[in-house]
Write a protein that binds this DNA or RNA. Structure first.
Lengths: 214, 214
DNA sequence: TCTCTAATACGAGAGTTTATCGCATTTTAC
DNA sequence: GTAAAATGCGATAAACTCTCGTATTAGAGA
């Protein structure tokens, strides 16, 4: 990071892109930058990902790059946030099916599968995630995402078991989502067959009733 | 990273320190560098950790620093490896008590507690871990550590249940250790009281018999 | 169509940080 | 005491990220 003086375009969301440009052309370039960034990360890994790579591949100059994104972390952050949003949609969808206490365990299992398939479909997600772990500001972004996921799970459980105490529920949800994320990130490092086996094992460890929460 | 020409001291372990210097004085400086690095990380976080900070605080010149460590990652790697070794000792000790299948669950619970207490005793471990996650080479170091831990668990189970198939056992052990690490890293972000509650919840999710492995 | 203004684009180079190299100093061996 | 090996040093090369003044382009109004 070098010196910083003025924000030339508009109020930036912390760690994310500057406010969207108004002209059509620039919106296209914005997307082009993100697309190139994704390609480069997929090819070279998050570690070797350089601003100069994006300049070279996208044809967008340094100055322009920094008109769209306040810094390098913002590019990674924008990619991460898009993927996180996809993940949140999966979870929302899988939890929507919970209408009775006994639906919970199957729903958690579906989330495990959704998450695993999402990572397998977009291997670059792993690089993006690693890049977010490397930056304090971006770690917060993932922490916030986890908080939302945890909230979604809490809401689903509350729907079918209103008597569970709030504090217990919050702790349980956060832990469960953390473990699901950890298990899936572990699984994607394995060959697919092993991965399925490991995830099956993991599903048996997920709670299949709400007794522990009472 | 800049250019590299020759390894002036000796064959470096990848990601770690160069081979130990022979003289007493230099061995002391080596430790001094690591001690300062730990302090700086604890104070400023892994993100803001600079080689120039170490030079300033330790009084060791740049050239000398790089005589002991091939690069910045090696300093972090050396710290990480030391902490990992402590963790492995905990696990070894806790698993040594397993002499029958029913000892397994209590042993896993003890590991959870040992790990949590280790992190609480040395908060800088969290920064060191984050720094290792930020570097591809160091990620491997943690992966290797996890492989060892997983192996220790496999050995313990094999001792009391020789009939469990190897492949199943390996998958189970790797998953279990991964989940323990994830749960503990989650817990240390919480206030201690909540953390205990979450870890207690987690322990109930750990398998308490070996039926699932048969 | 022309013109004016704001938005967008540009890239040399400033500012940081990591890492090296050749020479100076200290330790060890004999 | 002296030669050789080990260790110490810091200016500076190299690799980055990010900025700033200027050039170009788009779009609204005449």
């Amino acid at each position: 990071m070098a010196r910083r003086k003025a924000a030339p375009v508009a109020a930036p969301l912390p760690g994310l892109a500057r406010l969207a440009p108004t002209q059509q052309r620039s919106r296209e370039r914005f997307e082009r930058i993100l697309a190139c960034a994704t390609e480069i990360m997929a090819e070279k890994g998050s570690e070797a990902f350089r601003m100069s790579d994006i300049v070279e591949r996208s044809g967008v100059a340094f100055g322009s790059l920094y008109q769209y994104f306040p810094d390098k972390a913002a590019i990674i952050g924008t990619l991460a946030e898009r993927h996180n949003a996809v993940g949140r949609d999966c979870v929302r969808r899988d939890l929507a099916a919970v209408t009775a206490p006994r639906d919970l365990h199957p729903a958690l299992c579906r989330i495990v599968d959704s998450y695993y398939e999402m990572f397998m479909r977009e291997p670059v997600m792993r690089d993006i995630w690693q890049a977010t772990q490397a930056d304090r500001g971006l770690q917060k972004l993932d922490a916030d995402d986890m908080a939302v996921l945890s909230g979604l799970l809490s809401d689903a459980i509350r729907r079918v078991a209103p008597s569970v105490p709030s504090a217990t529920l919050a702790s349980f949800s956060a832990l469960t989502m953390t473990l699901i994320a950890a298990a899936v990130r572990h699984a994607i490092t394995l060959p697919p067959k092993k991965a399925r086996q490991v995830l099956a094992q993991f599903k048996t460890m997920l709670p299949d009733d709400l007794a522990g929460l009472a």
